[in-house]
Computed example of a mutant assay.
Amino acid sequence: MSQQLKSKPLPSFIEERLEFYFQDLIEPNTNQKHLVLGQRPQADAIVMQSNDYLSLSHNQDIQRAHRDAISSHDDNVVMSAIFLQDETTKPAFEHQLAEYVGMESCLLSQSGWAANIGLLQTICAPNSPVYIDFFAHMSLWEGIRAAGAQAFPFMHNNMNHLRKQVERHGPGVIVVDSVYSTIGTIAPLRDIYEMAQAYDCAVVVDESHSLGTHGPNGEGLVKALGLTEHVDFITVSLAKTFAYRAGAILGPKKLAQTLPFVAYPAIFSSTVLPQEIVRLEKTLEVIKKSDDKRNQLFNHAKALTTGLKQIGFHIRSESQIVALECGNERNTERVRDFLEDNNVFGAVFCRPATGRNKNIIRFSLNADMTPQDIDHVLTVCQKAFDHPELEFV
């Protein structure tokens, strides 16, 4: 019989901090878990918590390529990518992804988080102005902090507010998501480019939620809008449509020549392994040929958003990400439980992903859903909307 280990007493200031988090985030909830932790879905549940938009996680061709690569690769590259930056060691996938997106160069990173932090740490001098949409991904905010730059937020997709900020603080870097990961809105990229051109600003676009899903062959919104030559840098998480764990930074060749030796996430993390790159190469090949899945995905998104708006929900989505705005934590917990009791599972977004009392339940649609799935979600949402104890913003 194993003996239960006891942890040693913590210093009081740490104990107080952890207790504060427990009292703030755990104890108020009925199930005594964090708000994002509801039930576990059963086999027949409709699960919209994953960002695997084209349903590639279980693609047999991708899995086979990955398995074969694990068996055949014996390269000892468990090291920082800083040592692998010559043409004989850089992966061909970087060139393939750069060509796909339409940028001059590409650098793989360990995640989309690492990509955004590494890029901003490289291109932003201390105290330089960075203009960031309020709804931009947290990794972009953290990148500004890591660079020692100054964040000047502008209201979501509000070009007038952005203009006022730039006129007040001068040329800098404008950072946006192409598709925003919380409520599924789309950035006005053409307006942002024109603003940047007028005020001598650089533009960074995080295409994590549009690469693979939007544009011809899934090439992304920047390329679909003909803005590739006008956007300075693109970042992407390959844990969304690519359904794996990595990220990428795309931009001019000079960036690829310098960032690996400047950005802390690039220097102090191990490189993406060769067998993982083979998987990503195969995934890119599959994504390019997945127009049918992209069409299915957006047919589902249109049907769901149209149906929810007809019910009376305030839906701001313009993409495959659809959010129910639930307000405070107690109401969000009740909505979550009602949906899950009826076999509909979304992802709860709360502090720090959203503002206080601005919680949402996010539905991330995928191509393998059926019209019957959409009908069931709408039926359950109608019941939730009519429920006297549930509220929606």
Rank of each mutant, 00 (worst) to 15 (best):
I277E: 06
G327H: 05
G212D: 06
G346R: 10
F20R: 15
F83K: 10
R145G: 00
P126D: 00
G118V: 04
L280D: 02
T306P: 04
A263V: 06
N366P: 04
P129H: 12
P153N: 08
R163N: 09
L18Y: 09
I70P: 06
G102E: 03
M48H: 01
F349Y: 14
E94V: 05
K288Q: 15
I311E: 08
M155E: 12
A301N: 03
V222H: 05
S80D: 07
R64T: 13
T241A: 14
P11Q: 07
M195Q: 14
N29G: 05
F349K: 07
P9V: 06
P274M: 08
I361Q: 13
L120M: 12
P216A: 12
L211W: 06
F313C: 04
N342W: 08
I234Q: 14
V380H: 11
H376S: 04
I360E: 00
G38T: 10
Q257I: 01
Q310H: 13
Q372T: 12
D133H: 14
M48T: 12
V344E: 10
G118C: 05
V322D: 06
M369H: 10
K223L: 11
Q382W: 01
V179G: 09
A248Y: 05
Y264L: 00
S109M: 11
L5T: 07
N359E: 05
L56W: 04
N29Y: 10
L25K: 15
Y131S: 09
L308R: 03
D373K: 02
R316K: 12
A248F: 09
A146Q: 12
R316W: 09
G327P: 03
V393S: 08
L390S: 07
A81T: 03
I46D: 07
M1A: 13
F345H: 07
I315C: 03
L297R: 01
G226V: 10
M1R: 11
T185I: 13
R316T: 14
G184C: 08
G327L: 04
F392V: 10
D291M: 08
V78N: 11
F22V: 08
Q49N: 09
A92C: 02
N331H: 09
A198D: 15
L37M: 15
V47S: 06
T332W: 09
S270K: 10
H300D: 00
P28S: 11
Y264Q: 12
L37Q: 15
D200R: 13
E219I: 13
Q60F: 04
L255T: 07
H156G: 01
V236C: 15
